[in-house]
Amino acid sequence: MATTSAPMIAFRDVGKTYPKTTAPVMTGVDLEIERGELVALIGPSGCGKSTLLNLLAGLTDATTGTIDVAGSAGTEELRSAYVFQNPRLLPWRSVRHNVEFGLEQAGVPAAERRRRANEALELVHLGEHGEKYPHQLSGGMQQRAALARGLALEPDLLLLDEPFGALDALTRSYLQEELLSIVRRFGTTTLLVTHDIDEALLLADRIVVMSSRPARIKRVVTVPFGRERALDSVLAHPQFVPLRHEIRDLLRPEVAASDPAVEAGAPEVLSS
């Protein structure tokens, strides 16, 4: 996504080493993310993809380097929402009250909380299910509720850590297209962690391929399918299969490095 303005987020030579460990999780990460861009992070398990999300969410600090937000060296407050693979809904609260939870923590008045929660539920097609409880929803509906909880915050930045990984293929494909429609509609900058190459190709403007630990950015792949897209059109695009093979080839030695069983001949843990 070409632009002449400063990036919304810039990682500059970022490294992370956790206390009581000597080996870094990541080192020398340089990445710029533009406003409204959807960037997918893909790499072997445990390589540090989620750590990048946690750094942006303020859940942990970089050991080395800097993370600049909106070109202001981190001085501009960024509203972010984090959606995990597990919906993490509170079972004793209704769906609507789950969606309101983050707004409560932010001190939003009750009437405004209810309005924003209802709007977010409508966006994910759960408007008629707000008074139900999580156990009354299917897995896909629970994940929609988790997404609504994030959207109700009206975030500048949406962080997604394998949000559809636990869902069946059909439900996942519908939610992928729904997510893409929502973030395009609101221009939400989105960072997605995924192990699914097809998901990255469907959703992302760019795909960041990461190495095994210590994680570095191996390559950034620009996705040529346009901002407005649907699953069927992406699958039919003549560049889809070559790009899938390119990313698999980039990941193959990294998966082998992180899992000796792959190098020894066991099946690869890569989406096809």
Rank of each mutant, 00 (worst) to 15 (best):
R184W: 02
L179A: 11
A152Y: 01
Y174G: 11
E178D: 14
D196L: 01
D161S: 09
V183L: 09
L160W: 00
A169F: 02
G187R: 12
Q142R: 15
F164Y: 11
G150T: 10
V193H: 01
T188N: 06
P155E: 08
F164D: 11
L179N: 06
D168S: 04
S173T: 14
I182R: 04
P163K: 08
L158A: 10
L191R: 06
H195C: 07
F164I: 07
P163I: 09
E154V: 06
D198N: 14
E177F: 01
E154P: 01
G165S: 15
G165P: 10
E178Y: 00
T188L: 14
A166I: 07
A152C: 02
D161T: 09
D156S: 13
D198P: 12
L159W: 01
T194I: 14
L175H: 12
G187T: 13
E177P: 00
D168V: 13
A152W: 05
L159N: 05
L147M: 14
E162V: 02
L153C: 09
I197N: 08
A152I: 04
L158V: 13
F186C: 09
V193W: 00
L170W: 10
R185H: 12
L179K: 04
A166P: 07
L192E: 11
E199Y: 00
R172G: 05
A145F: 00
L191D: 13
L167C: 11
F186V: 09
E154R: 15
R172D: 07
E154Y: 01
G150C: 09
R184D: 12
L158W: 05
L170I: 15
T188D: 11
H195P: 06
P155Y: 00
L175D: 11
A148K: 02
L180M: 06
L147I: 14
E154K: 15
Q176M: 03
L167N: 09
E178L: 14
D198V: 07
T194C: 12
R144S: 10
R149H: 03
A145G: 05
A169T: 12
A145V: 15
T190G: 10
L175Y: 04
L160H: 06
H195T: 11
R149C: 04
T188C: 13
L158C: 07
L179Y: 01
R172W: 07
R172C: 03
D198Y: 00
T194D: 10
E199D: 06
L192K: 08
G150N: 03
E178M: 13
L175C: 05
R144A: 08
T188E: 10
T194S: 11
L175R: 10
I197A: 07
S173Q: 14
A146L: 04
D198H: 08
A148M: 08
E162W: 05
I197V: 14
P163S: 13
